[in-house]
């Protein structure tokens, strides 16, 4: 509808470079563990296994050529996106264990105590 436009623009949009890599969590995990298997081998689909690696480490289309390294964000804010305690019982959010960021071990990075790749409380650092 109302489709009078410069036709070549469709190709211009199609040819934009993509930044985020392979689609699908499973495929991405396989791909990343080919090189980083030693670090990320412990995976439980229940816990953080569902989070795509690129969410925390940034786009990885041509990694490890470009960028050679991915960013490592150790900030508390990264974890608080999901773990701030919000008392919303009607939302899926209540299924994620929440903490109060103002009282739970303030001043220290979460990854000091928790393993971001397998945060299971039993196997804590």
């Amino acid at each position: 509808m109302y489709s009078y436009h410069r036709k070549s623009n469709v190709m211009e949009w199609k040819n934009q470079p993509a930044k985020y890599g392979v689609s699908g969590r499973e495929r991405m995990h396989e791909y990343c563990s080919a090189c980083h298997g030693a670090v990320v081998k412990v995976r439980t689909e229940k816990l953080h296994g569902i989070i795509p690696c690129e969410d925390c480490h940034g786009p990885a289309m041509n990694h490890p050529e470009n960028p050679e390294k991915l960013t490592i964000d150790r900030s508390r804010e990264l974890c608080l996106r999901c773990h701030t305690n919000l008392p919303y019982t009607t939302s899926e959010r209540h299924r994620i264990p929440g903490i109060n960021p103002k009282t739970h071990n303030t001043g220290a990075e979460c990854v000091k105590c928790h393993n971001p790749h397998n945060p299971s409380l039993e196997g804590m650092k």
């Binding site: 949009w13 993509a18 985020y20 689609s23 690129e54």
Partner: peptide
């Protein structure tokens, strides 16, 4: 939003779909 048209045409999911853990 372009539905990440460049990604769709490369056979990839759009960035937001790709990023959603849930």
């Amino acid at each position: 939003c372009t539905f990440c048209y460049h990604r769709l045409s490369k056979g990839l999911d759009s960035a937001c779909v790709n990023a959603c853990p849930f």
